[in-house]
């Protein structure tokens, strides 16, 4: 039974990191209906900024983590201002193509730095010994990752539900023209959506980088790895990202724990999320918590 609960614990830990990584997709889609293909590169950028500030500049990692959130916030806001704002009102596919271009640009820029083709790891700043209780164990890195994830998810949920700007962002997501007619600045909302997505990506990058080490391929691949989470939860639902993240984490752990190594099965943890994604989408095409829009003609 301990084994079962260990898998549950690991599933929740991994799932919450997936949820945080998926959040960036949701934040942009929720306000602008755009899918940001360069999200993985933003995750990597956040991790590398934290490392550079910590190791090269010598700032304590706790502080450099928050500075990296701020820098990525400003960076993504600038990206939106320079590249995407002029595309407001253009077909969505054009905007998505721009995010693909953005992905290539970020790739190229990162390859110009040592991070593109070298490996690094954050200096040890948490106790090495895991937290163990009743036969279950969890590393300090994972615990801190889960706390940051839920704190950020809680903050974003509150922001969208209670704050004026958050409500404006939801309004823009529902109807841009109607929002403009009541005085909401749609460009400002888009900028803020990108900035908050950048912030969440940087947080995810810091946490993933601390778990896997800093390797550009590994980090930016998480932009794709969390894609089933985003689709399963519903592209426009923060709650959906959290629930789907945890579902995916649990599926991966249970598949790895109970299926792999038995009956000649292997790598089920990688494949199973996609199979389950397909099955769920057959019945709920908008994901578990996605909004099904009904258009009157």
């Amino acid at each position: 039974m301990t084994y079962f609960f260990q898998l549950v614990l690991s599933g929740i830990v991994v799932g919450s990191i997936y949820a945080l990584s998926a959040l960036g997709f949701v934040l942009i889609y929720k306000s602008s209906r755009v899918l940001n293909i360069a999200h993985g590169q933003l995750i990597a950028t956040g991790a590398f900024i934290t490392y550079a500030l910590t190791v090269w500049v010598g700032i304590p990692i706790y502080i450099s983590f928050f500075i990296s959130l701020l820098i990525t916030f400003i960076l993504t806001m600038s990206v939106e201002r320079i590249f995407l704002r002029r595309l407001i009102g253009e077909p969505i596919i054009s905007v998505i193509m721009v995010t693909i271009g953005l992905m290539s640009i970020l790739d190229g820029l990162i390859y110009l730095t040592p991070f593109g083709s070298e490996n690094f790891s954050f200096p040890l700043f948490l106790p090495k010994e895991p937290i163990s209780m009743a036969g279950l164990s969890m590393s300090w890195t994972q615990l801190v990752g889960v706390i940051i994830t839920f704190a950020l998810i809680g903050a974003f949920s509150w922001f969208f539900k209670k704050s004026t700007i958050g409500i404006s962002m939801r309004a823009v997501s529902d109807d841009q023209l109607a929002s403009m007619s009541i005085g909401i600045s749609v460009p400002r909302v888009f900028g803020l959506a990108w900035a908050t997505a950048g912030l969440s990506a940087a947080a995810a990058g810091g946490i993933i980088g601390n778990t896997t080490g800093l390797n550009f391929d590994t980090l930016h691949a998480f932009g794709i790895t969390v894609f089933p989470v985003v689709i399963l939860g519903g592209l426009d639902s923060i709650l959906g990202a959290v629930v789907a993240g945890i579902i995916m984490g649990l599926i991966q752990q249970f598949a790895g724990g109970y299926l792999d190594g038995n009956w000649g099965l292997n790598g089920t943890g990688v494949v199973l999320p996609y199979i389950i994604l397909l099955i769920i989408l057959l019945f709920k095409p908008h994901g578990l918590f996605g909004i099904h829009e009904i258009e009157r003609v």
């Binding site: 260990q6 991994v14 590994t218 691949a221 790895t225 790895g256 724990g257 792999d260 790598g267």
Partner: peptide, 30 residues
Amino acid sequence: EHGQDLDNTAMLKRLKSKEVQYVLCQTVQS
């Protein structure tokens, strides 16, 4: 066969329960 794993607890516990003493790796560093 590994994937993009953020946590290998399940795999390591499974190997431990099967009394595996040596893991031989043929992959890349990450």
